[in-house]
Amino acid sequence: MDVNCPDCGCEIDPTTGLTCPRCGATVTCSSLSCEDCDGCSGLFEPIERVVRERLRS
């Protein structure tokens, strides 16, 4: 499943990262639900992504 960029609507493959290849916008895990994204490969990866995202801000 791909994710749509919130800025330009371009499809983003979450397995290659959450940055739009067209406009460079970053999609954050907190702006998506896990049902809308298949970018995490393991059970604990969604938690790790949220923690990293919060530490960056």
Rank of each mutant, 00 (worst) to 15 (best):
I47E: 10
S31F: 00
L18I: 09
T15I: 02
T19A: 07
G39R: 08
T26C: 03
P21Q: 05
F44C: 01
L55R: 15
T15Q: 12
T19Q: 13
V50P: 00
T19L: 04
C8Y: 06
G39A: 06
D7Y: 07
D2Y: 13
S41D: 13
T16D: 14
D2F: 11
S41P: 00
C8P: 09
R22K: 13
C10G: 00
L18C: 03
R54E: 09
P6H: 12
C5F: 08
S31I: 01
V3N: 08
S31E: 14
R49F: 12
C5Y: 10
A25K: 08
P46V: 07
R56G: 06
D36N: 14
C34R: 13
C40P: 03
S31L: 01
S57L: 08
R52G: 06
G42M: 02
E48F: 06
E48N: 09
C5H: 06
P46N: 10
R49K: 15
C23F: 10
C10M: 11
C40W: 15
E53A: 06
R54K: 13
F44V: 08
C40F: 13
T16F: 11
V50G: 01
V27Q: 11
S41T: 10
P21M: 04
G39Q: 07
C5T: 02
P6M: 02
I12T: 08
S41C: 08
L18E: 00
L55T: 07
V3Q: 02
M1E: 12
C20Q: 04
C23V: 03
S57E: 14
R56D: 12
R52V: 06
P46C: 07
S41V: 06
